[in-house]
Design a protein around this nucleic acid. Structure first.
Lengths: 210, 210
DNA sequence: ACTACCTGAACGAACGTTCAGTTAGGAGCT
DNA sequence: AGCTCCTAACTGAACGTTCGTTCAGGTAGT
């Protein structure tokens, strides 16, 4: 389906430590702004040593993406797999999503940078490794919660709402003078739950074409 | 308040054409990935000529940001200044926001890149020149629409929802097989309006701490 | 002796930036 | 009208630095 090689040979400890440092740097500064020498300095080695493990800079970035993107998809299932009532599951989901985006800035920033870069192959990787499984689970929950709605649109709206809000946090701190980001994000999660719950349970406006 | 110089001397036509090409390139590829030679080639001149108009690359980027960020704040007022009923105003707002983010990729991408970069001074510029006026207007509308809600949280949620959704568009095209992006975004705008309207009009869950 | 891992030094290319010199066009004077 | 003077705009070439990458050689464990 995708042209990206998804078969991942097991990584040595050394490679993992390289990729984790690389992911952190690329997430923070972007691909072009991180040099091989920067990365080598970060893990106390030399540029040439990196070329013993990877053929070039692009391969380091691609492997770092795969390494970071391979983890998080599994975690969601434990969040949603319980047979809670839909509204309870929705609350758990939104809290989990909010924490995921705010507590894992490396993943969140790499996702944002990939969305900005727009490379087709790497977007497929992002879609399949990170987005697909959570999206399908959220779609199922949305179908249970509001069968009359377009579940895809509802699921995408939830992800968009949480991702966008976490991105806006620094601007909101300036606009509202809010300082306690942790509490602020908890308030947002409660607000978002209410918004989605009541917004989707109200009967849809049929044929309301804009 | 901000340490960024906001006094903008009038720009010559030449400078404007440089800044518009620069904004497009920086938006598409990012600051570090665009060289002075790339920019010079784009507008059929030489690197040295650019240094006649701007002291260095950073100044070109800063001026391009100011140039792009100075326009859009005014447009929102005409969208909201009419004394429509709140629900009609909300629909107009969401449609306008969605179009703004999708039809003006240079602005949208520069905003996203600034959010990622996180530079304090430039975030202040972004906040004051782009975000503040729309945010206050949306806050006022939210207060009219749902006085029992936290207007700041509601306003931020709307911006986050639209911004996040437009960002996710390429991934959603893969996930749902959707191809007609224009129609797709219209459907989203209708969905978002319903979500916010009914989600905020339902009585809030008092003290629902998570 | 073989392999995995690493080093120091260097390669050419591209980077941001500078600079002496050239061009074009208008203002002021005769 | 012609002439001088001035300035803004630009050019070609070069500067020192950093970039991604290579390579001959070295070290340590099996």
């Amino acid at each position: 389906m995708s042209s990206v090689d998804l078969t991942v040979p097991p990584l040595s400890d050394r490679k993992v430590s390289i990729l984790e440092a690389a992911a952190a740097l690329f997430a923070k500064y972007g691909y072009a702004a991180v040099s091989i020498r920067d990365l080598a300095r970060e893990i106390h080695t030399t540029p040439a040593a990196l070329y013993h493990h990877f053929p070039d800079k692009g391969a380091i970035y691609a492997a770092a993406l795969r390494h970071v993107f391979s983890d998080p998809a599994k975690a969601l299932e434990t969040v949603l797999k319980g047979d809670d009532a839909p509204d309870v599951a929705l609350e758990r989901l939104i809290v989990w999503l909010t924490q995921q985006f705010s507590d894992n800035p490396v993943l969140a920033r790499l996702v944002q940078r990939e969305l900005l870069a727009g490379d087709r192959d790497r977007l497929s990787l992002l879609t399949e490794d990170v987005m697909a499984a959570p999206f399908r689970e959220i779609e199922r929950l949305m179908h249970r919660l509001a069968p009359a709605r377009d579940a895809s649109l509802s699921a995408a709206s939830i992800i968009a709402l949480v991702m966008g809000y976490v991105q806006l946090t620094p601007v909101l701190e300036v606009l509202t003078g809010e300082r306690n980001t942790k509490q602020h994000l908890r308030d947002f999660a409660a607000h978002a739950k209410d918004l989605v719950l009541h917004g989707l349970l109200a009967q849809p406006q049929p044929g309301a074409h804009i």
